[in-house]
């Protein structure tokens, strides 16, 4: 589904990604872990087409197409979904109006008819109950005045409505309490199917208790330094990132706030 080869990218003058190779097949969930500043979010942003990231070398092939040729909206219509680390507040744009425009743009691209207001409302209702979304939040402007947890929940809600082929979660678990974490995980797990895939970017192993990955990759200084199975995540939790070149000393791979709550 996704094949990344020797990907280099920079922001401004600073090279962040220094040769990433990663292959994600349909039906798989990959976790990308690593310390702060290792390039995890940059990788997610490059895949979604964030304009300020410049790819200097390498290639990304998604479902047989050169992904880097596509505009962000074209990538979304082709089934890529980025759950933002920091979802953007957009005052004045109604949440449901926005989501309906997004869904119909995706549907139009697939040659499917646009959903009318009634069909859309029915779809929203079913996804709302799945994720325990509050109706009141949905009738407000996009993320406007939402708490951190509400914003993340809204990302997963959008993902559930848009049903992407490739979901990329950029530290969606950061700052979430255990209940919200379970909601996020439930949203991802509900989408798991043989023809979909997910890349879960996370600093902490914790989320992977709920979204069990097929593979775990450790990113450090813009490169994947280790790949392995689920056990690698647990090993990281045990040892921290301290053993990696470029990581801060003994930076934990566990979220002590969550540990305290659990």
């Amino acid at each position: 589904m996704l094949e990344i080869r020797n990907l280099h990218a920079r922001v401004g003058d600073k090279e962040i990604l220094k040769g990433i190779d990663l292959r994600v097949d349909a039906g798989e969930v990959h976790a990308v872990m690593g310390p702060n500043g290792s390039g995890k979010s940059t990788l997610a942003g490059v895949l979604a087409g964030r304009p300020e990231y410049v790819v200097t070398e390498g290639s990304v092939v998604y479902r047989g197409r050169n992904l880097l040729d596509l505009q962000p909206e074209e990538r979304a219509r082709e089934g890529i979904f980025l759950a933002f680390q920091y979802p953007v507040e957009i005052p004045g744009v109604n949440n449901l109006y926005f989501l309906k425009a997004a869904l119909n743009a995706v549907r139009a691209h697939r040659g499917e008819p646009e959903l009318d207001a009634i069909e859309f409302t029915a779809l929203v209702r079913s996804k709302m109950s799945l994720l325990g979304m509050d109706q009141e939040l949905l009738s407000r402007p996009v993320n406007d005045g939402f708490s951190g947890g509400e914003k993340k929940r809204n990302e997963i809600f959008q993902m559930a409505v848009l049903e992407p082929a490739l979901a990329i979660l950029d530290e969606t678990d950061s700052g979430l309490d255990i209940d919200a974490l379970k909601v996020v995980a439930g949203g991802v797990n509900a989408l798991r199917s043989p023809d979909r895939a997910a890349v879960v970017v996370t600093h902490y192993q914790r989320l992977l208790n709920y979204i069990v990955p097929d593979q775990v990759h450790v990113l450090s200084d813009g490169r994947i330094v280790r790949s392995g199975g689920r056990g690698l995540a647990l090993e990281l939790e045990e040892k921290g990132y301290g053993w990696l070149a470029g990581a801060e000393d003994n930076e934990p791979a566990r979220d002590s706030r969550l540990e305290a709550r659990a």
Binding site: E73, L82, G92, F98, L103, A105, Q158
Partner: peptide, 26 residues
């Protein structure tokens, strides 16, 4: 806002429509 524009585009909304949406919201 470039961030808001990218957010809308990352959901599949075309650039012109996204701009129009933000201007109308303003």
């Amino acid at each position: 806002s470039a961030e808001a524009l990218f957010y809308l585009r990352a959901r599949g909304i075309g650039e012109q429509d996204a701009r129009a949406m933000l201007v109308r919201a303003f």
